[in-house]
Design a protein around this nucleic acid. Structure first.
Lengths: 336, 336
DNA sequence: CTGAAAGCGCTAACAA
DNA sequence: TTGTTAGCGCTTTCAG
């Protein structure tokens, strides 16, 4: 049985209030009393019960993080940023990872209601209007990272611009047979994919090139699916000279296929990804760096601003995106 | 201000005890009363305050997970298993990720003392005797995953056997110029590296081959360091025909270097890793599968057995290891 | 500067 | 089957 504040008070011959004051660094404790209390704590190997403190103060000193399966590096990278930012604070991190829409909805309903956490960070999971309303009305403020809702605070990037940036870069290199390999456009998980696609198409057409339906393929955003989709593109009668992959994982799948097929990158094929996961650097992959880690950090920062009432929902924090040119892109061999 | 149990009681014209009984599915509540209470809860959009419940019951319904930086896929994979196993329970997961020994020690001291969690899962962080003693004496039971201490419960594998397995396999293929590329042997983080090394050396020598000091290199277990170490090995006057990497990440670094240097794998060089991370599968890497995900699941299971007093510390649960032969290993070209 | 006492929202023992 | 009440361990008035 661990010692309680009362045990300490008794041993130090003071009231529990005084012990509490020592615990909370209150100034109104005489030095002599403080020493006596500290000695008693030490002797009893006392440490305060955080649960009792939580009930008393109404603060839990924990932040809940809701995010999709931990299997994708980009989520982990964002979580890493959250974790890092929280490390400097006195807050703990409760992890809620959801694997499917059912779980997601269940958590959205629960998490916002229970007073288990002081704040909620939702990563890469766009809420429905109903869920957003619940979040907004919850006593624990929420911040979306890599997700958007008009009523909430979000940390986001401009995906249309991102898609456009990639496409413009490839066009500038001299490519015009540019394929887009995407996650499913109509998934509730990643509307950003749709925006990147939009940026791609708009830019392409504005530059005077027709959109070729065969150059657009979509599928689950895992490496092996991407491999297959890439093969589909590269075995076309008139294959693309550049492939824009919706995320780095998919780009890596493209690289796999290129290697398998003996297609040289970047000589025969330019490949560009999106995200800026660590592997992209090792693989020398040209990509859009969207500062995943930093998004987690900023999410925490925004959440704290909300907690301290420095700001109010809704609000948007836009993170920059940067084209990082590495070794998987080059001008096409047959320049027009 | 959220509704409390008292509000519900008042609205339903019952005592708080009855509401509590409904909340806890007690049988001794008449159906009619139960309905009335449920209706009141519904009307008030009531949900019980978990903190108050925790204080009252002494159970927090959360498990603390302590693990090193989230940046390595193997830790994430283990965490994933923990998370998955916890999903089926009513327990939440509080994440403590530590980046350096100082943080680690601080957490070891704190986590075991505070009554914030009902149980503790320590992943890949071997405690000192002092820390182990603290964990053992804590009211919250602890389980080590991928770490060992004689006084605690652990989920582990036989790393000596693993190192031996790899070496035997390579020897059987006909290799004898087998290099070992390792994490630092003397790091407090991964004593398992030392055991794998031991298995490697013993097996090699038992087979009648001298250990060649030049064939052993060590460094931080990240991909780029591994690349450099691999280059060091492969530019030796008499380079090895096979490289055994202490973990998959390092093996991937070796593959990088081989590609850069135009060394064909597996024709000119066999490469074998250790861990069984997802990327190993995609990269067609021969490796030791040590069931990372499953280790997390088993850790949770053991922890629950401990919580339910089905077992007592210390105890060890050994997980199997399996050689997974893929495409990066083959007999050496010049068979002896 | 300090002690006493009233909660925080819930559970569980005890009566009824 | 139910209501009442005494805590759980802490913070925070309010007197002194």
């Amino acid at each position: 049985m661990p010692a309680t504040i009362r045990d300490v008070a008794k041993l130090a011959s003071v009231g529990v209030g005084t012990v509490s004051r020592v615990l909370n660094d209150s100034l109104s404790v005489s030095d002599e009393t403080r020493q006596r209390v500290l000695a008693a704590m030490d002797e009893l190997d006392y440490s305060p019960n955080p649960i009792a403190r939580q009930l008393s103060t109404g603060r839990t000193l924990t932040i809940g993080v809701l995010l999709p399966h931990l299997t994708m590096p980009s989520y982990v990278e964002r979580l890493s940023g959250v974790q890092q930012a929280l490390l400097e604070t006195e807050y703990d991190l409760v992890l809620f990872s959801v694997e499917n829409p059912t779980q997601r909805d269940a958590f959205f309903d629960n998490i916002s209601q229970t007073s288990r956490v002081d704040g909620i960070l939702v990563v890469s999971l766009p809420p429905t209007d109903r869920q957003a309303a619940r979040l907004a009305s919850s006593s624990a403020p929420a911040v979306l990272v890599d997700a958007y809702h008009p009523d909430l605070c979000c940390v986001i990037t401009d995906d249309i611009k991102g898609g456009s940036l990639v496409t413009k870069y490839l066009l500038d290199l001299g490519h015009h047979k540019i394929a887009y390999l995407s996650d499913f456009l109509e998934t509730p998980f990643h509307p950003s994919m749709r925006y990147r696609y939009q940026g791609y198409r708009d830019t392409l057409e504005k530059a005077g090139f027709d959109f070729i339906p065969e150059y657009f393929v979509e599928g689950h955003n895992d490496r092996s699916t991407a491999r297959q989709l890439a093969r589909q593109l590269l075995t076309l009668p008139d294959p693309p000279s550049a492939i824009f992959a919706g995320c780095d994982i998919q780009a890596i799948g493209v690289l796999d296929t290129a290697r398998e097929m003996g297609i040289r990158v970047p000589q025969d094929l330019s490949v560009i990804g999106y995200d800026g996961i660590r592997d992209a650097e090792y693989l020398n992959l040209t990509t859009i760096e969207q500062h995943l880690f930093e998004s987690g950090v900023q999410g925490v920062r925004l959440l704290f601003d909300l907690l301290e009432k420095n700001i109010e929902a809704p609000c948007q924090k836009y993170l920059p995106i940067d084209l990082v040119v590495r070794g998987t892109t080059a001008p096409p061999i047959h320049v027009i």
